[in-house]
Write a protein that binds this DNA or RNA. Structure first.
Lengths: 345, 345
DNA sequence: CTTAAATGTGCAATCGATTGCATGTTAATA
DNA sequence: TATTAACATGCAATCGATTGCACATTTAAG
């Protein structure tokens, strides 16, 4: 097991000091070209690997970014993370990914652990349960930059990136109306974090703007998972008058509805049209394929990371901060499950 | 912006030295109970957060584990990662996730960057292109433990966790034979990393054991993505005699075939039965639902992490290592796409 | 009452890289 | 030739936590 070489090893090898080696490796202009070359050569020869830990301690900067997501195995989040990672790597940063599992105490622990690991900042999507944000505010007080994406909050004075959930929902419902639907149900979550609030608002506003009365019975709450969607659908089927369309705040919820409808031999979209939300990979594989709202996850990752690093750099330069919200426009992906009017797909 | 408190701040606050504080915080038995309590109290009062970087430098141990996957936004990998993270967190470690994007030079860079970040070890699934393993061997020489999962190699003397791809394929094909299929095609990758080699071997052996002649025309190579599956299917349709079943080494490939078959009004499974591989989330949402081989991704993450930490601990104790392969048995998930014999699902 | 053992803290070095300041050398200018 | 500027490198402190060894105090044993 080779003992690791340090700049001191290189220094004594070349009969100079560690200072010189350090400067040479960091392209400090005060080092002569000859020395620099000699150092680089010796470094290669001795198989030198810089110790980022030591540099981090000295510089107070780890080049590590903490990323907190509720869960990494959901297409949306893993895709955002990928976007973040692409930008981060390009700038010489690595990311530490942590999952909160939508658990409040786990989120607190995670934030603290990342702070102790001396990450240079945190990019997070907050958990569903989280209503108190002290753990994030503590970081802000210490000057650790934070950027939130998707699941955001106005209770923190930080930069945020989200999609326009309101508009996405509005577009989805408008589309259903255009297709001739008049009795449109909505699947939502009982936990009213902003994204679900906004989607509900988009739904009701779209109805209003199209002169369709709002019916409380048509708004069904569930966990928005597959089973939740199934239950919600069964609940709708017990109404005197069935809806002719469903706008679900999640693709999984819509999928549950689709399963039940198919089991009951109810035709999609002729009898009931369906629209989901998130553009999960499976939505293009169902039969019929599922109309949904794309959240531009990769782009969101990119934008979030760019915003984060902008902030990080301006912090260095003592540029005063103003928190900003970046809102991305989602895109309605029209597929078979909502296309009643014609054969076009 | 509060300047961060260190053990020295606590020390001077209590009129003791940093040594005492450090020992108290680490539950060193040589510290009196009174002092310990006082230190803990002061730490809380001064809002002390340990600096892991400093400890890492001193201890030569970062409590960080590097995890390298080809891509984090594939269900299988993100699920394994989740499994790894669960175990790691429980043991006080955090993981740094890096994506190689199946790019050889990116993989080399990543390994090096993780080494520089002084991770305590690496858990990896190697890229498709990778045929030279020097970058990993360099780490081994430095005593950094490595465990591989899923995409492994015999060219590295490290612990490995994989599923029995051979058996998974063998079971899948046997199942198709049981369902009465006699002309079974196979979708595979031109890149013959071990997983694809093993699945091909399972396919051929199963045919042989059931007395079905091997037909070269029925083995189609593609990238195994959706489009690849479509192309492969079209290729098969041009044969004089169509196959009556397809075993695809990936779910996406099977999905492509399903799409083409449905477009051509060819009945699944009556005319052509389908089996995929990986149990991607969408496979239970297709119509017909797709028979596939589950890879126990979460379990694989758990097992891999446990193996890794066992090794890490025994390294500390200077226990001699013997590399071992852990092979998990995959599970055939039988769904509609392959069930010809009866109505049971 | 003396001596040895047990107990609780402090001192100072260490991990490896970085950097302000000082010093020595060479080249350029008057 | 003297003087100064420009250049190249070294010295030593620093980042924060840890730990072997030394020292002082208390307790127990003889």
């Amino acid at each position: 097991m080779a003992t690791k070489t340090t700049i001191h090893d290189i220094a004594s090898f070349l009969n100079v000091t560690a200072s010189t080696v350090s400067r040479a490796l960091n392209n400090n202009p005060r080092i002569s070209e000859n020395t620099r070359k000699a150092v680089l050569k010796a470094a290669k020869q001795l198989n030198y690997q810089p110790n980022n830990i030591a540099a981090a301690l000295r510089n107070g900067k780890s080049n590590l970014i903490g990323v907190i997501v509720p869960t990494a195995d959901r297409a949306f989040f893993s895709s955002v993370v990928r976007g973040i990672e692409e930008i981060a790597n390009r700038l010489g940063y690595k990311i530490i990914i942590c999952q909160s599992y939508d658990d409040y105490s786990k989120e607190i622990q995670t934030v603290e652990a990342l702070a102790n690991a001396r990450v240079d900042g945190i990019i997070a999507s907050i958990g569903k349960e989280t209503v108190n944000f002290d753990h994030y505010n503590d970081l802000l007080k210490k000057g650790i930059p934070i950027v939130l994406f998707d699941r955001t909050t106005d209770q923190l004075a930080v930069n945020q990136v989200m999609i326009d959930d309101y508009q996405g929902a509005y577009d989805a419902v408008s589309h259903l109306v255009d297709e001739g639907c008049q009795r449109i149900a909505h699947f939502t979550s009982p936990v009213k974090i902003s994204i679900y609030k906004e989607r509900l608002r988009g739904y009701t506003d779209a109805l209003k703007d199209h002169g369709i009365p709002f019916d409380d019975n048509l708004v069904i709450e569930s966990n928005l998972q597959l089973e939740g969607g199934r239950q919600s659908m069964l609940q709708l089927l017990e109404l005197n008058k069935m809806p002719d369309a469903i706008f679900s705040a999640s693709d999984y919820g819509a999928m549950g509805a689709m399963q039940v409808l198919k089991e009951k031999k109810i035709k999609i979209p002729q009898q009931v049209a369906l629209v989901g939300f998130a553009n999960e990979p499976f939505t293009s594989f169902t039969d019929p394929t599922l109309t949904t709202v794309d959240q531009l996850s990769l782009a969101m990752g990119h934008v979030t990371a760019e915003l984060f690093f902008d902030q990080l750099n301006s912090l260095d330069k003592q540029i005063p901060q103003r928190t900003q919200k970046t809102v991305l426009q989602p895109q309605l992906i029209i597929r078979q499950s909502s296309l009643r009017s014609s054969g076009r797909v």
